[in-house]
Design a protein around this nucleic acid. Structure first.
Lengths: 145, 145
DNA sequence: CGTGCATCCTGTAGTGACTACAGGAGCAAG
DNA sequence: CTTGCTCCTGTAGTCACTACAGGATGCACG
């Protein structure tokens, strides 16, 4: 097994970019198609040739996704300067809105967790005459207005 | 087999079912198409005619979705007896797995909340020389130091 | 009995963020 | 030259809906 070495030019194909950033090859091409990632130059054979700049942008996108930002939010963040510097105000506005969303989601999930957890407990305690999980799933049908 | 109050003609069209259950008309038709909801009989003019049975099944599906179950999970639950009775064991197995997923999600979101919250705070405290939100988004710490 | 309008029908396409092929071309090693 | 890997384009599938377009039906009102 020979080590994969590429030239001093510091450019690499899509597979290498994928390995460097942990982003799926298909996803990289998808990002290019929807304009998230700038289209790189091509080799003579028509292959995409990337460099460090792409690595940084793609890593930025990936990190943003991990933090739960939508691609549109990340696009906005990139427009505000991306991996380079940018005005704090607008950036933290997007981030704060996102944080609100996260907190709402956590609250919702916690309510769910409590309800479901208690219900399953009653199930396993064997104190219920009929399955309690199915009970919470069967609400009273609403009366006609 | 006992029928469900057919004495008076309490059947209704899709719009009424939608109102009764709070499920979008388009979504009801979608559920029918993918086999979540049994296809109802049709009127002479070809319109769907529903009764209380459909209301109960659809309300069950809706409640399941609110609780974050996937349609496939709900389908399994329905197969286990749906709004009628069913064995507790298999039901709570599905529910417990789902509860695990919820807890994982909550933990992930909490980590996110902490990181993002702290970062935005630093942003607003104005103590940072450069935008901290963009910093956590850039995994590469400003190369060429 | 006609008219208008709400409701309904089918079918298709769009959403977000990917993922999974099919079918072919490039390229380096043995 | 052959093998086998990587890469290319293009299309379609995923999940759970949602949004039309373009037409048919049903019912109240005049």
């Amino acid at each position: 097994m020979e080590a994969i070495t590429h030239s001093r030019a510091d450019t690499f194909p899509i597979g290498e970019l994928s390995r460097l950033t942990g982003v799926n090859i298909e996803t990289i091409r998808y990002y290019e198609r929807i304009g998230m990632l700038p289209a790189p130059p091509r080799s003579e054979g028509g292959r995409r040739v990337y460099d460090q700049h792409h690595t940084r942008v793609l890593a930025f996108i990936r990190r943003g996704r991990e933090l739960g930002f939508t691609l549109d939010e990340i696009k906005a963040l990139l427009a505000l300067g991306g991996p380079e510097r940018a005005p704090c105000g607008e950036v933290s506005e997007i981030a704060t809105k996102h944080l609100d969303d996260i907190r709402t989601k956590i609250a919702d999930l916690r309510k769910l967790e409590r309800l479901l957890g208690q219900t399953i407990d009653r199930c396993e305690g064997g104190t219920a005459p009929e399955c309690p999980v199915l009970d919470i799933l069967s609400p009273e049908p609403r009366r006609r207005a």
